[in-house]
Design a protein around this nucleic acid. Structure first.
Length: 679
DNA sequence: TAGAAGCAGATTTTT
DNA sequence: TCTGCTTCTA
């Protein structure tokens, strides 16, 4: 332990060794947050606190597993490892033990956002789906019950939404489903209503730590309040300047007001940055200083001055992406590996032109945060089948795969089956097992297919009990999902995903011999992809997706007003600025901020001006920069839609526009640079 | 019932 | 412009 403490700076050591009382660790970007948190956990344990008395909560599986690895390497083998998991995993574990207090069975199934929308689709009518989904989230996170919502709704519009909420909740309870919000809201409810469980839980977790506290929402704050109330040993780590999830309910007030909400809070600021050069840090500090709502801290550099930040100015997005691709190639030629380079953007739509440019120049890249593995249709189909095997009353999953592979069922047939189930108050699967009745509902062909479907599921239910390991192989041989997908676009990829999933299932059962299919399914619903950063690719991703990552060489594209900061309905300019701060602080050695004069977006080309953030970093007017700009130069060959091919005679700058004097086969014309293409 | 054509809508995203 | 969803037609 002595040795571990020696590796820390003063502030980090103070945070680690302050173990009794509430503690707020303000950890700036690159200030050794994870190191501090994991060392603190090790310190607690080395001070005789039983690992089982600690609880460490994170937001992502990735953060949880990284911390677990690092903490365990410090504390070595302990018989009872500390509980270190995501908020939602904690909710899941809690509900497994206590959900019966709400009159529900602990065989519940977790549904994800897509599942939720699929359910809501049946109830929404003319209300937009995403609005209904987010309003229901809001209700749950504000602990408003459906009946309260219905009672309190004033406008007809909101009455409808409240009514949808009520129907959704009825459905969810009836099918024993639990959505992501429930994983936090239901434990809260149980703790609030049951003093015995509250006492028992507070007794159990004497020391609670929370990572990324700036991302907590109102409900998570309330839950923590209940979990920690009697102990007063809540330690939260976060950075108010990196709060970028306000739009999905994260409440920056939680971290700003922590010291008022939890008594006798000690605050420790980690302000030494071990990541970026001094110049990069200076730009980041300059930018974030323009925000008012912050606790205030200044990152101090521990690294050399470093190179100037480059401002790249291009006429349009194609030129921008080609220039960046070329710059990347230059870096590679200097011996930099692809994995140390990343390109960030504020909105995903900007990735397309970037990809084109990288492709053209032959730069290998990986788009981080595309369609997630577990969200792929083929993977969700297998999961639906497995869920039916685990629980045939899961109407929702039955509906998903009842016609996959095709069983000749259309809207009409499905509707008949559904209303039969509804009228008799039984599940769809039960209708399918009632052969006499089913015969009256569907065609002969469909009937035969559905008979086989039920037989297959029944067979798999037996296998699940006898030899769970074999379930996926048997499943494939009965339902032939791979064959089904071999006739669809991207079949190769889909089959690979199916195989990967089967492998994943087997691995899980091998490494968790005590577990069965049901455990696997709940585990899977909380799992997301962990895009690994490989050395062989440049990473391109949104700024949000880059949080927590770092790269030696970083490009940020789309630094234009309207794009970054993104201006639209409900723009929170301070949050945009924090995004800018997050983006800049991902860079370790060299940073390029890039903007264009015009960009093609949503079907039209618009003229843009450079982002205010460029000025706010102090880069534009200051001495740090050399503004580099050359859209076209004399002698370039260009093509115009009407005038054809011509040669540039002169380039001039009019306000923010570049004007070209072009020779089209003897005729000289003055044309704005945006209206021609380089060839 | 299943593909084709037509149409609105279009930030950021983890669990 | 592109995507995903609904409506139309064989």
């Amino acid at each position: 332990m002595e040795r571990l403490l020696k590796e820390l700076n003063d502030a980090q050591r103070e945070a680690v060794t302050y173990i009794d009382g509430n503690l707020l660790i303000l950890a700036g970007a690159g200030s050794g947050k994870t190191k501090t948190l994991t060392t603190r956990l090790a310190y607690l344990i080395s001070n005789g606190i039983p690992p089982s008395s600690t609880l460490t909560l994170t937001f992502t599986n990735k953060a949880a597993s990284e911390m677990r690895t690092r903490a365990l390497s410090m504390i070595g083998g302990v018989s009872y490892p500390p509980l270190l998991c995501t908020f939602h995993k904690f909710g899941l574990l809690f509900l497994k033990f206590h959900i019966e207090r709400l009159g529900r069975k602990n065989s519940f199934v977790i549904i994800d956002t897509n599942d939720k929308k699929r359910i809501l689709k049946n109830f929404v009518g003319e209300i937009p789906l995403s609005l209904a989904a987010s309003e229901i989230s809001r209700y749950k996170n504000s602990l408003i019950s459906p009946s309260e919502a219905v009672r309190n709704a004033q406008q007809p519009h909101y009455k409808k939404i409240a009514e949808i909420y009520r129907k959704y909740e009825d459905f969810v309870k009836e099918n024993n489903l639990v959505d992501f919000d429930d994983l936090i809201a239901l434990p809260y409810k149980i703790l609030e209503e049951n003093e015995d469980i509250r006492e028992e839980t507070a007794e159990r977790y004497q020391y609670i730590m929370v990572d990324e506290y700036q991302d907590t929402n109102e409900l998570q704050y309330k839950l923590l309040k209940l979990l920690s109330s009697d102990n007063g040993n809540l330690c939260v780590v976060g950075d108010d300047d990196q709060s970028i999830y306000g739009w999905r309910g994260a409440n920056i007030k939680n971290i700003l007001d922590f010291k008022d909400q939890f008594p006798n809070t000690k605050i420790v600021k980690l302000e030494y940055n071990y990541r970026s050069t001094a110049k990069i840090l200076k730009a980041a500090n300059n930018l974030i200083e323009h925000n008012r709502d912050r606790l205030g801290k200044v990152l101090k550099s521990t690294k050399e001055e470093g190179k100037d930040i480059e401002i790249l100015h291009s006429p349009n997005e194609m030129s921008e992406s080609l220039t960046i691709a070329k710059k990347i190639k230059e870096l590679i030629n200097k011996g930099v590996s692809y994995g140390q380079i990343a390109v960030l953007y504020r909105i995903n739509a900007l990735s397309r032109s970037l990809e084109e440019g990288l492709n053209k120049e032959g730069v290998p890249y990986k788009l981080v945060g595309g369609v997630k593995f577990y969200e792929r249709a083929e993977v969700k189909d297998i999961i639906a089948y497995l869920r039916i095997i685990a629980n045939p009353y899961d109407d929702f999953s039955v509906k998903r795969v009842i016609n996959k592979p095709r069983r000749g069922l259309g809207k009409v047939a499905l509707g008949k089956i559904e209303s039969a189930a509804y009228e008799s108050k039984i599940s769809i699967y039960e209708v399918l097992t009632d052969r006499e009745r089913l015969k009256t509902l569907v065609s002969k062909r469909s009937f035969d297919e559905l008979k086989k479907f039920v037989e297959g599921i029944e067979r798999l239910r037996e296998i699940k009990l006898e030899a769970p390991y074999n379930v996926v192989d048997e499943f494939e041989s009965i339902f032939k999902l791979k064959e089904f997908y071999s006739h669809t676009p991207d079949s190769y990829e889909k089959i690979a995903n199916i195989d990967e999933f089967y492998g994943f299932y087997k691995d899980y059962l091998k490494s968790n011999p005590e577990s069965d299919l049901d455990d696997f399914l709940n585990e899977v619903s909380l799992q997301s992809d962990q895009d690994e950063i490989s050395e062989d690719n440049v990473c391109i991703m949104s700024v949000h997706a880059s949080k927590g990552l770092e790269f030696d060489y970083l490009f940020v594209v789309g630094m234009e007003e309207g794009f970054f900061p993104l201006i639209g309905e409900g723009t929170d300019i301070e949050e945009e600025r924090r995004l800018g701060y997050v983006a800049i602080t991902r860079a370790k050695k060299e940073l390029t901020l890039s903007y264009v004069d015009s960009r093609f977006f949503r079907g039209k080309r618009s003229q843009l001006t450079k982002s205010r953030f460029l000025k706010e970093t102090g880069l534009i007017k200051g001495s740090l920069v050399l503004e580099r700009t050359t859209p076209y130069k004399k002698g370039d060959l260009v093509k115009h839609k009407i005038f054809g091919i011509g040669r540039v005679l002169a380039v001039s700058k009019v306000k923010r526009e570049f004007k070209l004097k072009i020779n089209f086969g003897g005729t000289h014309r003055e044309i704005l640079a945006d209206y021609v293409k380089r060839i």
